[in-house]
Design a protein around this nucleic acid. Structure first.
Length: 473
RNA sequence: GGCGACGUACCCAAGUGGUUAAGGGAGCGCUCUGCAAAAGCGUUAUUCGGCGGUUCGAAUCCGCCCGUCGCCUCCA
């Protein structure tokens, strides 16, 4: 089955045909490491992660690159505030970035190029643009001349005249056109800087992504993804800088993600209405946050509602319960064909990564497997086939399968488990004696400690999760 | 002002011309239970922001109106 995806460049869904058969070269704009990233940024990282995982599920060999912008005005400003070196800020938040995406279950990219480690390549690229006349030097700054690139505006649907007429473009007498943008910035006193043909300075933001992506993926690559707000000017400028030098198409498919909103408003650092991914992960498990994101199509805006994430946590928990059932399911005589569900899943995902529809297929699979299991039982090969697909989809592609109970903190400890079991045994004796008051006291006390008891036909099972009472705020 | 997205049940959200409008959460009923919890099962929109139009047929196409949001400036 073919994959179709919505390409911002053509404003339409297109059949995905990678440059090289069976191989995908993909790039996503990574963080500027001046602070913790927020839950809205997390949505982009998770969505990109799921797209990458699905392409691999679909059989592609994916090379996935994400940059780290580790030199930038914001980093310099933050360092000045804290009274430390820009380096220190970058190092601290690069480390935090890796911790947080790991906690979110985002699989590592193949390469994480850093701007400060790509300076030579950036300088060469800018030099090339200056030589070709697409860029010009003014007092140690280098600007890209938008008029030198006739196709400027093709991604965002803007044109230079309108941008200039928009009057919001800051006037800078040194620029030939107000829409021109900096490729290289001359160093101000005290700022980190590198040698260049135009004196000491540092790269502009846009050029980093162009150079870092092309360095690892080639002059033309398949997919470049990022948030909607990067379409203009960031990605527009990337195209201009890249294609003006190579004369080749820079990126074949541009994917853009919808925003996470809070109170119907875009969540952003500048509006100050954000919560960091780090804070969110203290409140909710990663699988719940991921499930919450995937319940909405990646291009649509998504309103952050605590009850929404709580619902997502519960939804994801059903996957775990079902997965455990599969392991203990008695085999029966009937066969169950998982293929229609696999097809529905693939059809949904192939249609511009329609994760909500794909989730629907997975829930129907659970429902129908249970119904079949009740109605005579399913044979072993069918159970195995369901489990194989289920694991590859829920865990492999979406990354939303909650960990088994044993993996939860505290519950894996042998002594803790023994103590809980002793209490359960005592309580069950009390129940036999119909001393329910004391039995319930044990149950309530355990519940307060995070241990939930489930009385069933075959005895009492228990599970652990961090107590609700520790919620903060 | 220019460009663009969206408005589907109590909440979230698929579906973009044709059988009964997916799925999740919540509510309700049931099973299980000493009672719970958890889990499972069942159930909840003659209707898709409003008004017109095209069509044998529209949530789906067209027009207008109302409402929400985004980009045009750093931002995922």
């Amino acid at each position: 089955m073919d994959i179709y995806l919505y390409n911002t460049l053509t404003r339409s869904k297109e059949k995905f045909e990678p440059l090289e058969e069976g191989k995908v070269r993909m790039y996503t704009c990574g963080p500027t490491v001046y602070d913790y990233f927020h839950i809205g940024n997390a949505r982009s990282f998770v969505v990109a992660d799921v797209i990458r995982r699905y392409l691999e599920y679909a059989g592609y060999d994916v090379t996935f690159v994400m940059n780290i912008t580790d030199i930038d005005d914001k980093i310099i400003n933050r360092a000045a505030e804290k009274g430390v070196e820009a380096n220190d800020v970058a190092r601290e938040f690069t480390e935090a970035f890796f911790q947080d995406i790991e906690a979110l279950g985002v699989r590592p990219a193949d390469v994480y190029p850093k701007a400060t480690e790509t300076i030579d390549d950036i300088v060469r690229h800018v030099e090339g643009l200056v030589k070709s006349g697409a860029a010009y030097v003014v007092e140690g700054d280098v600007y890209f001349s938008v008029e030198a690139f006739p196709e400027y505006g093709k991604l965002s649907g803007k044109n230079i005249e309108e941008l200039v007429a928009g009057a919001l473009v800051e006037k800078d007498e040194r620029k030939r056109n107000p829409a021109d943008f900096a490729l290289w910035k001359a160093a101000k006193p005290g700022e980190p800087s590198w040698e260049s043909p135009w004196g000491r300075g540092r790269p502009g933001w846009h050029i980093e992504c162009s150079v870092m992506s092309q360095k690892y993926l080639g002059e033309t690559f398949d997919i470049h993804a990022g948030g909607n707000d990067l379409i203009f000017p960031h990605h527009e400028n990337e195209i201009a800088q890249s294609e003006a030098l190579t004369g080749k198409q820079f990126v074949r498919y541009w994917l853009h993600f919808g925003f996470l909103r809070i109170n119907e408003e875009k969540m952003s650092k500048s509006l100050g209405n954000f919560i960091t991914a780090r804070e969110a992960l203290k409140k909710w498990p990663a699988y719940g946050i991921r499930f919450f994101f995937l319940q909405t199509h990646y291009r649509s805006p998504l309103n952050l509602l605590p009850e929404g994430i709580e619902g997502a946590v519960k939804g994801a928990a059903k996957f775990r319960a079902f997965r455990d059932e599969l392991d203990t399911m008695d085999d029966g005589a009937r066969s169950f064909d998982a293929e229609p569900y696999r097809e529905r899943f693939a059809r949904a995902m192939n249609d511009d990564f329609n994760t909500p529809a794909a989730l629907g297929a997975l829930f129907d699979l659970m429902h129908d497997v249970r119904a079949a299991a009740l109605d005579g039982g399913i044979d072993r090969p069918s159970i195995d086939a369901v489990r194989d697909f289920f694991d590859r989809a829920v865990d492999g592609v979406f990354g939303i399968l909650p960990p088994p109970q044993e993996a939860l903190p505290g519950a894996g400890d042998a002594l803790v488990g023994d103590l809980v079991q002793i209490l359960i045994d005592v309580r069950n004796d009390l129940r036999k004696e119909r001393n329910f008051a004391l039995a319930d006291r044990i149950r309530d006390a355990l519940a307060a400690a995070g241990v939930t008891l489930k009385d069933g036909k075959d005895g009492t099972a228990w599970s652990y999760s961090p107590p609700e009472s520790t919620t903060r705020g």
